[in-house]
Every structure is written in C-alpha cells, then in structure tokens.
Amino acid sequence: MARVFDSVLDESGKSPRLIGGRSRTSGAIVFPLPEGSEADLFDRILLRPDGKLWSFTIQRFPPKHPPYLGVTDPARFSPFAVGYVELENEVIVESRLLIDDFAELHIGMPMTLTTTTIETEEGARSIRTFAFEPV
C-alpha cells in the first residue's frame, strides 16, 4: 500500500492532473493549491499535463531524513532527476523527472505528467507522487 499525496494530484480522470490554484484577484496560477485560510483566495484548477523542461539537475547524493522519505542509505540510493517543467501560460512546476538516460535531458524537452513510486527504507511504506517524463 503506497502513500499518495492526494492534495496535489487528481486521479479521477483517465490520466493524472496536478491541482493548482488561480488567484481570485490577479488571475495568477500557483502550485500547489494553497491550504488553510489562504485557500479562500484561490479557485481550484487542474493544470495542463504537458509542458517543456525549463531546467533540471540530477540528485546524486541521498537527501537527509527528515524530511526525505526515500532511501537514504548511500549503498542503496539511486540518483534521480529533478527539474522545472513550464506549463505554457500557467506555471512552472518543480517535479521529479523519469528518464532512463540522464544524458538525454535538455532544456525545452517536451514532457508529460505521470506518477512514480519512491522506494523507501526497508519496512516503510512506499510513497507515490507526481513526476514528468519525456513525451
């Protein structure tokens, strides 16, 4: 049983969509949708699932726990790609990137939304979250 971040991901349709917010005053689009009292200032919207890679890097060392829930043991850790994906006329979203060959990543690369499971330390629940992959 994987833990899912359902406050950011809408999976009610055929394909997953990110949940963003549109400011009721300026019309600006933000991600994620603000929670708490700030939520009153935004309308919930589903962001477009396709975009272009805006920048990226490879996470070559394990992030620390807390807050990271994935594998932190250097012997078991696998590097992963992260980047910003520009959703045209909406917002630029930071996300994990799924790609077999890191060398293929380049700015401007067309990307589409998917989900991914992050392996955790043994005995812990895996976590499922949003990610972008090349079209």
């Binding site: 971040f5 950011v8 920048s55 990226f56 890097t57 992030p63 807390p66 807050p67 994935g70 700015i107």
Partner: peptide, 20 residues
Amino acid sequence: WYGETGMMLTTQFFAMKIRR
C-alpha cells in the same frame, strides 16, 4: 511532501539556476 519526495535541497536550486 516537498521535502518528503526529495526536492527541498539548496544544492538542487543552485544547479538548476546555473544550468539555465
């Protein structure tokens, strides 16, 4: 979730800013 999924690192930001 931002930290739990491994995106809250200063080093990533520096790398992505200079990459662009």
